[in-house]
Amino acid sequence: MSAPFIAKRPPPDFVLCTDRWTQPFWDAARQHRLVAARCASCGRFRMPPTPFCPNCRSQDIHWSTLRGEGVVYSYTVVSRAVLEGMDQHIPYVPAVVSLPDADGVRLISNVVDAPIDSIRVGSPVRVVWDQISPHVVVPRFTLIV
């Protein structure tokens, strides 16, 4: 238990499915740009993107490009394989990451490539890009040290 455990990437068996409202997020990810949906009418951020702004019901979206820095809002450490083939991917760290330059809207992602015992609620993190298949890039986050 003395060796530092490094947070790995979660199992890559992820099938991306999109619609016209979510596609721009994943398109931007392929270009290594972290974006968030913002209502073009009232300015409210919302993630995941949905067809209407819950604040003003507008359907107009402006996709804001973010700095890619966030704060760990909460996290868990998955250290037991509950699916076949998961063994080689544990431990990994699912995390809820708050994005200050999108009014604190949160993404469900992972903290990766960091010593697990250094991860805290409130840790500052920076986006890293994880190409998990030829056409799918997923944002993860790593600790800013």
Partner: peptide, 27 residues
């Protein structure tokens, strides 16, 4: 089944409710 909505949590390796509720517990 994969859907546009599941894409925003499935990639994180949250494979069961126990993983998700752990995030609330930690908070």
């Amino acid at each position: 089944d994969a859907s546009p909505e599941t894409a925003f949590f499935a990639a994180a390796g949250l494979v069961g409710p126990g993983h998700m509720f752990a995030l609330l517990a930690r908070r």
